[in-house]
Design a protein around this nucleic acid. Structure first.
Length: 397
RNA sequence: GUGGUCGUAGCUCAACGGUGGAGCACUAGGUUGUGGUCCUAGGGGUUGUGGGUUCGAUCCCCAUCGACCACC
């Protein structure tokens, strides 16, 4: 159940409450990603202190190892992982894209390209762990996610590459629509056998690559399904920020008002602000924890790297305005040292900080929407926050 | 003491007598529904030292310093 609390005038931003079997979620919300049943480097009680209300798990990874039946036997994902709050599982559809269907793009760059066969029934692929053959379909993805037991589950989709021509984009979109219907039917059948207090919410995923008419058509199709939310897939996969914001602008009038809007895979602080402004309620992203493991952290002034030599002797916290555990207890000289030495704690402490930064940002966003001051807040934030331009500054003469 | 091997970037090592390179480390970037992976760029050298041969020496010769190995 989704209830809208407040709307910001002059913007599509709104606050709301999403009710799930494991508790309620305030939106706009950022959902930390815990692919293998753990948010890398951060304990559940730390996530609670940071302010996380819901985290993700991944169907693809948990299906391959340890297998959903083990997790079901152990009492479900929440009990097994000691995260007794709301969870969401991704469907595994993204791997159709990330494991080889996209010729120009793979986020798993160190994995050799291996065959992926897409048919109307589903996707045959090879495990990135051992090369073994597997098959996923809408029906199988629904059953796996039911066994895992998350509160919100995602439809099985095909995330076509951003470089797809329109003909292929339509083909992939039509297939994703057909799969969404199959997911819905399989889902309803499975949910009838689940207790009333454990009913899962299924969100379909709209696609359409970079083609405005396809994007609109897909969002309309997914909105009209009798499902409790909608997701936008296929963005933040390598296209420009302008392209992504444009697509969100195009979609905004077509978002179903009474359902939560989930933008998958986003994102950066600036992307979250821009997307909330365009009516998005839910986000997930690997960036805060991945950047942390690679030494990058956010502050209200932008992003920085802990290894920068200027921090070698610094007695400042990562961000002087931050109230997270890391910033309350550690100075940068120490964090830099333990990161340089490859210590696990460095990745953990930076992950805590980055997650806190995004969750604090979304908390502020909610407060400002409720107060009617979101637009001013967004402009102030972005004025102080330096966005990387992607260039290598060192190569300038 | 005798014989031998070897001294090249911070480290481990390349380079036919013809403008000294690589990996790691270091410096600076990148990573959007998670592989701590990976990618890009940059700064770094009197080739242990001193002579000699040569148009030209990291390379050949001599001396010297140092390290290591074998033998006495």
């Amino acid at each position: 159940m989704f209830q809208i609390l407040n709307k910001q005038k002059g913007s599509a931003a709104r606050t709301g409450i999403l009710t799930t079997p494991h508790g309620t979620i305030q939106t706009p919300v950022f959902m930390p990603v815990g692919t293998n049943g753990t948010v890398k480097g951060v304990k559940p009680e730390e996530l609670v202190e940071i302010g996380a209300e819901i985290i993700l798990g991944n169907t693809y990874h948990l299906h391959l190892r340890p297998g959903e039946l083990l997790i079901k036997e152990k009492g479900g994902l929440q009990k097994w992982t000691n995260w007794r709050r709301p969870m969401l599982t991704d469907s595994g559809g993204f791997q159709v894209f990330s494991l080889g269907a996209g010729k120009d793009y793979t986020p798993l760059s160190n994995i050799p390209k291996i065959g992926v066969k897409i048919s109307e029934d589903g996707v045959e692929f090879r495990s990135h762990l051992d090369g073994s053959k597997h098959f996923l379909s809408p029906e199988i993805a629904m059953q796996i996610q039911a066994d895992l037991g998350a509160d919100v589950i995602m439809a099985f989709d095909e995330c076509a590459p951003g470089t797809s021509d329109k003909s292929y984009a339509r083909q992939a979109m039509d297939r994703t629509h057909a799969w969404a219907l199959k997911c819905k039917i399989a889902h309803e059948k499975i949910q009838k056998e689940r207790p009333a207090e454990a009913q899962q919410m299924l969100f379909p995923i709209a696609q359409g690559v970079v083609y405005d008419d396809l994007r609109i058509e897909s969002m309309k199709f997914m909105s009209e399904l009798d499902l409790p939310g909608v997701a936008i897939g296929g963005l933040s996969v390598g296209e420009s920020k302008e392209q992504m914001y444009h697509t969100l602008d195009v979609l905004q009038p077509h978002l179903p008002e009474h359902k939560p809007h989930y933008l998958m895979g986003v994102g950066t602080p600036e992307d979250i602000l821009e997307a909330v402004d365009r009516g998005i309620d839910m986000f997930d992203c690997v960036l805060p924890t991945r950047l942390a493991r690679h030494g990058t952290f956010w502050t209200h002034e932008g992003r920085f790297h802990i290894k920068q030599s200027g921090f070698k002797n610094s007695s400042e916290p990562l961000d002087t305005t931050c109230t997270c555990y890391t910033c309350r207890n550690y100075e940068m000289s120490y964090l830099r040292h333990i990161f340089t030495e490859g210590e696990i704690l460095a990745m953990s402490l930076l992950s805590i900080h980055n997650l806190h930064f995004l969750l604090d940002l979304t908390a502020k966003i909610r407060a400002h929407i409720n107060a009617g001051t979101f637009t001013t807040f967004k402009n102030d934030f972005l004025r102080n926050f330096t966005i990387p331009d992607g260039k290598n500054h060192n190569s300038d003469p």
